[in-house]
Design a binder for these strands. Structure first.
Lengths: 113, 113
DNA sequence: CCCAACTGGTTTAAAAAGTCAAGCGGTGTG
DNA sequence: CACACCGCTTGACTTTTTAAACCAGTTGGG
């Protein structure tokens, strides 16, 4: 009897966060290294700015990523998104997905309709 | 580089599947043991039948789960959903999420608005 | 100098996805 | 017989995601 029950189980909540569209992609991109907004959008591949903004705000509110605004005087202001230590530890999750994907989703399977 | 590029990278596709709403919950519930439709819906907690049906079809088409119809004569016909070997190996992903959640999402963090 | 392209976003409306509640055929139980 | 359960399907409604346009500022080329 440990399954279900929304509010209590941390795993349930974790899944709730990680299954939001683009979140895993964002984390994966950021695991490679910090990125600016547009740069991140490109790395993630296909996410529109509106959704991206919202996801980033959410992830920041959960303290998984941090936003830093670099405005060197005379230089173009740039927002830089980085993973926090907690966010970086999602590496294990990405690794698990990676390992699984290479074994079970390599070629076929994911065929469209 | 190696990031991005939808169709090619298995990880990208894996994320695409796993981030669909309820998928991770379904897998988690099924890792505990095979379940019937309504039973699964209850275990997952909050997913409606329409979406559940669709997810199950998708997961079955990816060969992550298998549907078996048990109709013992004189007994109520029942659909049973089971993880395939490939699906069962998602255990590692769930474990990773579980481990991460317990460390970084235990108490606070996931506060509502 | 001026235009084009880049930065990090916001806004809007339309499309897609998910949800709720009801209901259908069937079985089994009081 | 009525009512509760099974496994879904349907249709109307709400939420989420999307594309596209646009703002303000910076930098580079012609």
């Amino acid at each position: 009897m440990s399954t279900a029950h929304p509010g209590f189980c941390p795993v349930y909540r974790a899944i709730g966060v990680l299954q939001e569209k683009w979140v895993l992609h964002i984390v994966r991109a950021l695991l490679v290294g910090e990125k600016g907004f547009n740069e991140l959008a490109r790395a993630v591949g296909g996410c529109n700015s509106a959704t991206l903004t919202q996801r980033l705000e959410h992830l920041e509110s959960l303290a998984l990523i941090a936003k830093r605004t670099e405005d060197s005087p005379g230089k173009l202001a740039r927002s830089v998104y980085t993973l926090t230590p907690a966010g970086r530890e999602l590496q294990s999750v990405i690794d698990a997905i990676d390992g699984w994907a290479r074994e079970h989703l390599t070629a076929a399977e994911a065929a469209p309709a």
